[in-house]
Computed example of a mutant assay.
Amino acid sequence: MSLAELSRLQPRDIARYLRTSGWVEAGRVRYAMRWTLETADSPARVLLPALITLTDYATRVADLLYAVASVENRPARAVYTDMALIDADTQRVIVRTNAPPGTVAVADGLTTTAGINHLLLSAATSEALGENRFVLPGKKPKRARDLLAQALLEPGSEVFTIRIPLSPISGQLPLRHMSLPEPPFGRRVSQLLYRAAWAAHDAAARSLATQDLNGFAAGVNSGVTADLCAALAALGSTARDGFAVRFGWASKWSIPQTYNRPTITFGRALLPVLIEAADFLRMRNTAHHAHATVTGLVVALRQATQNSGGTVTILAGPGSSSDLLDRRVTVHLSEDRYRQAIRAHLLTESVTFDGEVTRQGNALVMSEPNLR
């Protein structure tokens, strides 16, 4: 990088990169801030110049950049790109194989790339669907496929970098005149992937100690799916000692303080658990919920044939069986009950049904319903 390029890096963007990469601010030194990172050998330290107006600002940034690149075992140009990129979230998948340094076997590289594809697609699909599922549908939503087409991948021998583009903020009023806008779809996918990956990691660690996979079912509320678990297992299948995923956030959009653990490390012992979890969630997808209750608004109606009833879809709300909350349940009704459901829909009134709920693919279906 030239000194001109380095002089354009803003201190706040460099600080954002350091913070989301695990570095910790450790005090001020005159016109610079000290940052440290715990490593396997000893703590690494860098100095971030606080003022872009310093005459030697670019030289100081160069020192910091090459120090960070050395610690991360990455090209300085790649680190510079991450620091300068303010309109894309970045995830780095770190996979160390048995190939010679600086290389990766073709088959291993293809496996890792396919795993990244499935991982990102699973998170984008979950966000696009807007609901929690044990197993994702085979046909992915167009919005998820479009995001995958726009995302960029920078493959490496050990580090595969994913860049998720974020929509620009256009026509935004000053914050005093409006509430904060909703983050763009790409940022919401990054956040869901963060939550889901951590939930899968923690469930796998607990399962390794207790031999109980139920933590993965609970993790579905955080975006864990059979598809995500299978993708994570695939990422580690070629690694000699597991793999890690490191999250970086574009500075254009703020990130809640709860997203403060940037690196998730999946040790090799967790990989078989993830494979078991994928099968476990697929089995749960066909589970029965005998004598369940669903209470909520009718959000869709479909008449079968004239005078023969129809099908309604209910968004399960408070009063429903706990494992149905916020899920859509399909109920087949007789003509009389279908008319009652139409009336409730027009009046925006809740309805309550009791019956046996089964999973049919990704759908929840209630049979022999009793209307309360």
Rank of each mutant, 00 (worst) to 15 (best):
A99Q: 03
D202L: 12
P168K: 00
A205G: 11
A44M: 01
R359V: 03
A15Q: 09
Y259M: 12
L228Y: 04
T313H: 07
P75L: 04
A78E: 13
N73F: 02
Y57L: 01
T39Q: 03
V351T: 09
T161A: 15
W253M: 04
R163E: 14
R343M: 05
L208P: 07
P155A: 07
R240P: 02
S21R: 14
Y66M: 09
E5S: 14
D202F: 14
T113A: 15
A231Y: 03
V220R: 08
L65H: 01
I342R: 14
L119R: 10
V365K: 00
V273C: 01
L121R: 08
L136F: 09
T112M: 07
G223D: 08
V135D: 06
F243H: 11
A67D: 15
A4N: 11
R77H: 13
A209F: 04
S350M: 07
R60D: 04
D63W: 06
L315D: 07
G236I: 13
T358S: 05
L232W: 05
E131Y: 08
G267K: 11
D87R: 10
Q340S: 14
R8L: 14
S190P: 07
L193A: 13
E335V: 03
W253V: 05
I255A: 02
D108L: 04
P369E: 08
T313S: 11
P43D: 00
D354F: 10
Q91K: 09
L180R: 10
R163F: 15
H289R: 09
L175R: 06
P181C: 06
T258A: 10
H291R: 13
T112V: 15
T125E: 01
T265K: 14
